[in-house]
Design a protein around this nucleic acid. Sequence first.
DNA 1: AACAGGCGTTCCATATTATGAAACCTTTTA
DNA 2: TAAAAGGTTTCATAATATGGAACGCCTGTT
Lengths: 262, 262
Amino acid sequence: MSKSELATGTQAIDRASTLLVNILGATTPLYLSALAKAHDLPKSTTSRILAALERAGLIQRDRNGAFLAGHILTSFAREQNQDSVLVTRMRPILETLSAKTGETSNLAIPGNGFISLIDQVDGQYLLGATNWVGKQVPYHASALGKILLAYSTIPIPVGRLERLTEKTITSRVRLLQELEQVRKNGFAIIIDELEIGLVAVAAPIRELDGRVIGAISVSGPASRLNQKSLLEIGEMIISKVEDLQVNSLSSKPQKKRKVGAA
Amino acid sequence: MSKSELATGTQAIDRASTLLVNILGATTPLYLSALAKAHDLPKSTTSRILAALERAGLIQRDRNGAFLAGHILTSFAREQNQDSVLVTRMRPILETLSAKTGETSNLAIPGNGFISLIDQVDGQYLLGATNWVGKQVPYHASALGKILLAYSTIPIPVGRLERLTEKTITSRVRLLQELEQVRKNGFAIIIDELEIGLVAVAAPIRELDGRVIGAISVSGPASRLNQKSLLEIGEMIISKVEDLQVNSLSSKPQKKRKVGAA
DNA sequence: AACAGGCGTTCCATATTATGAAACCTTTTA
DNA sequence: TAAAAGGTTTCATAATATGGAACGCCTGTT
């Protein structure tokens, strides 16, 4: 029939897939008859296909018989967005960073009022290796926080920007300028802003669509990390994170696969 | 072949579904050959099916050609877990509650250190209708917070339990007893614990698997809501939330559908 | 009550469609 | 350079999906 692209030997699966995608994309449960009409399929065929998808747990019916995403997909969704997934995915990067720099690296996501530190890998140095996971670290005084503010949709916390050291940015105007600079650089730095003697550099983690969902930092004592090393480490974080993206997902496959002439 | 249950006219879709479920459930991308072996299918058939699923965007390949969840499913996952989904789903309940009681109702989810209020519907009374969304409301002094602590996996916040009024629970032992009581009742109440003159009652929102993911409350001035009304409203919240669950999901459909004899 | 209409499932003869063995291609390993 | 491993394509074949029609169930109408 008049199918859009090349495709052969998969009519049934194509139809099933299209129906499934339709159901997942809909904001409200869809009825069999509506689906049949929309996809221009006979009721009988539609019924058979949907029953098969339901059997597999890919879709389910509400009390009225309308179709919505099945338990397989809702639990998939739940698992996907758990912090642990991000931790697992980013662990190798944190380890590489700590190994190469000798310093502590951290992983953070946006939290309510404070950044939420969800993982840490300590470096080889004893000095500086405190555990930050779970700590209430403010956005405006941390490298991780600056990244999250600069790239994510988080609003700058309401209220006064707490002064933690004499270097802390406490002016909102000043902070906005700083965030602009962060976006220009691609990474964020703090020097003495959170704690005297503590420096850090952070870069964003992006989803495939570009959304920033977290940040990775390397931090240590100012005595070991000068401005230059911070810049280098910043670039290192960015490239490690990019490597992961590029390696894990592809339009052009690594192995050349013949695309076929039907 | 030796399929488990009744099924007819859907061999292809059944195979495709099983493969898809397998790919979604795997923690690491799966290769064509491994899938073919695991499902006892010829390579050619497997290739054809996977290509169809890929075309639909249900699966995609990583750089090495291994299969993982496709963009359709990852964006589905993302949307699912947005607060806005919960807000939309719960809105009707908040509206019913506010209409029936005349008081303000709120929707909250766990936040970092504080509960996170994500929606509110005001009642008819002028007195009492302040906007709480975005406020930093502590767990131990709110009805919503007590529910989240009692049912969810959130640990009781570290540090001192801040005294907000003379009635605030500030002893951890006392709080644990209170949470036990909450679990026994199925709802939580505060009287003067957050603010003198303010009372509230809250009940949990559960996912299909029983996990508590949020809470709904009704709050107002003690002058209008006595102990008895609070209990009644508590029961009302519980039943409204249950109604939604029952109505939106079903094993036994409302309309009796013939189950068929093959 | 009886009827019409809407929605969904089942049946079944049919040919369209999925099937899988074998050949073919690439890349990797020996 | 050969051989293995992983994947795609081809093509003759029959097994499988197909869809029109009949059926069953519920709701709303008169």
